[in-house]
């Protein structure tokens, strides 16, 4: 019995390219990640559990995941509107706006961090108006949400926009000629078509936001139990040479990130089958 690993063909270079790919990924990504897990196995279960459920750590999970969730939610709402406007309407400066939506992907997070802090602090351009309304943004958990909204802004726009552009106008016209009003058409026809893309964008934004460090540390104020995010907690444990503690918390985040990555893959497969 012969078990073929790959289909035969005339193209050369399979062994070379696959070998290089696996070697590169293994040395750079997989082995270093595996070592983090091995390091955690040196701890007993009780030690591990105590580190990852310490009150300060739990408070940081609550902030990190809560703020990332809210930021992804804000971006789902506004991202859908931005995608809709860019895909369907004409207005002056549209091409420039379209190009600038990707700015958070290109702008270094530290730059975003210091700029947002400056704008949203008590005497900043935006912060002074919010202050008169009694809202404090910089150096509070609200500031964390603002930073995360910025860095995850393009995801929903960029996943929903192409789907909206590809939707057939005929279907909407058919709905209208059958007596549906615009809202019914949106709710029954358009929204179901963009739902997988919207969910994918939400999950991508959420996954990106929970790992974010650079922009948040400037605006958060970094008060333990109040405005300290989990990645910062890992860094401060490292700076105190608490390698096991840092690794234990990191492994918890890694496992959650892997689950999210799996979810994103499933969602994308789902949206592909929906489009066909």
């Amino acid at each position: 019995m012969t078990l073929r690993f790959r289909q035969p063909g005339v193209l050369p270079g399979f062994g070379l390219t696959l070998g290089f790919t696996l070697g590169y990924l293994g040395l750079l990504v997989l082995i270093p990640l595996a070592i983090a897990f091995l390091r955690v196995f040196q701890l007993s279960w009780d030690e591990f559990w105590q580190i990852v459920t310490a009150p300060r750590v739990v408070a940081s999970y609550r902030l990190t995941f809560g703020a990332a969730f809210l930021a992804a939610l804000v971006n789902s709402g506004f991202g859908l509107i931005v995608a809709w406007v860019l895909a369907r309407y004409r207005f002056p400066g549209k091409r420039l706006v379209d190009a600038l939506v990707d700015l958070p992907f290109a702008l270094p997070t530290a730059v975003a961090g210091i700029t947002l802090t400056m704008l949203y602090s008590g005497n900043g351009w935006i912060g002074q108006y919010l202050k008169s309304l009694g809202i404090k943004v910089a150096f509070t958990p609200l500031g964390v949400i603002v930073a995360l909204v910025f860095i995850s802004l393009p995801f929903v726009v960029r996943t929903v926009q192409p789907v909206l552009e590809d939707l057939e106008a005929e279907v909407e016209e058919a709905a209208a000629s059958l007596g549906a009003n615009r809202w019914q058409t949106f709710r029954r026809i358009i929204f179901p078509a963009i739902r997988p893309a919207l969910l994918t964008g939400f999950t991508l934004a959420f996954a990106r936001a929970i790992g974010e460090y650079g922009s948040v540390i400037f605006i958060a104020g970094n008060l333990p139990m109040v405005s300290e995010i989990t990645p910062l907690l890992i860094v401060s444990k490292l700076e105190q040479y608490d390698y096991s503690g840092a690794t234990a918390v990191a492994v918890v985040m890694l496992v959650i990130s892997f689950v999210l990555l799996l979810l994103i893959n499933l969602l994308q497969r789902w949206s592909r089958t929906r489009q066909v």
Partner: peptide, 8 residues
């Protein structure tokens, strides 16, 4: 690497 926090 996209899913892993840069700190990690």
């Amino acid at each position: 690497p996209f899913a892993v926090s840069p700190v990690i």
